[in-house]
Design a protein around this nucleic acid. Sequence first.
DNA 1: ACTAAATTGTATCGATTGATACATAATGAT
DNA 2: ATCATTATGTATCAATCGATACAATTTAGT
Lengths: 192, 192
Amino acid sequence: MAGRQKIYDEDAALNAAIEVFWSHGYEKASSRDLQKAMGIGFSSFYLAYKGGKQELFAKSLQRFFTLYPQPFLDLLKSVNNPVEAIRQYYYVMTEPNGKFSEFGCYFSNTIFQADDSEFKEAAAKNLTTIADAFDDALLRAKNAGIIHPTIPAELWKTYLLNLWTGLNTTKSIVKDQSVLRATIDFSLKVFE
Amino acid sequence: MAGRQKIYDEDAALNAAIEVFWSHGYEKASSRDLQKAMGIGFSSFYLAYKGGKQELFAKSLQRFFTLYPQPFLDLLKSVNNPVEAIRQYYYVMTEPNGKFSEFGCYFSNTIFQADDSEFKEAAAKNLTTIADAFDDALLRAKNAGIIHPTIPAELWKTYLLNLWTGLNTTKSIVKDQSVLRATIDFSLKVFE
DNA sequence: ACTAAATTGTATCGATTGATACATAATGAT
DNA sequence: ATCATTATGTATCAATCGATACAATTTAGT
């Protein structure tokens, strides 16, 4: 192994790419925008990601899951009342100056914006993984007698998924944070 | 008033443009795609819509409302149980071979895809108008003793809006029609 | 020192984008 | 019949897209 050493930090570059994709969307994030934000040249860009923009975005989907949902899902395993934790998770969509409230859900956006069906499936899988973790935590809490859901267990995942993906759009229509949070609260009552 | 007569049908052309925008999205609907689908030449295109693609899309938003939600909102005024009508409206998002289930909600998609904030506002306004009509119909039914909602009246609009916009994404993740419909049914129970 | 391997910077490719120029064709008013 | 007015068709513009070519630069092994 010989050759010139890499100047840039691969992880930092990928994180920077996420910010560009997240704020601009896949299509509108040009390879020049990405290259500039990542702080690397065109040659390095296509050397590191031979599949170009597509490969970079596919990797950003994985990275995003590791950065944001994963820590929460780990926390969820050790939490007493999962409904409270999930509520706080959903609240981030209503925060006035947060990235989620501003740019939306990385995965939900991908399902809309990307033309590549491979991306849609990957994004859908990530969201399903999150819903599965919610499902597990809620089931444990129910079995432990901590919560007493009034919603059929076979609908939990879809119901929670729909609440989340809905907020991703609704936040752009309903600007009143208190109304959004009250709607989250009311919707989650069926799990308490 | 003199001059050559218009060959194409303006209304038909606008309807054709809607189909292109709806299926491809605003950005990916090129002016050439639109021109071809509308059956008109470039000169006619920019003569009829001096604002180009933007003006055409803005007009398509109005037209879409007239074509799809408006007839339902008119029906809703004379219906006995608005919850049943709303349920059927939401069901179109779960139909296997329907345009809504395939292409999604024209307005919700616009909120996501369009970069122009004017479009987002127009789309949001259309959705709000629909939610307002739902609100009115439900309130009348409640006052008439037909329904007995368990959800606070100040949350009706946001709750219904969130159910609709959520389905627009959830349908791409959850493919099982019966689960989607069961989720709609359960979500609407709070109005019965 | 020399060489092979790996990274980087600049220039540029062909394709597509939204939009326009301009000549031609068709119609109504006078 | 003439002319202003409106519509149409073709050719093309500048800008931007993702992606590549290729030489220059840097490093490790010998």
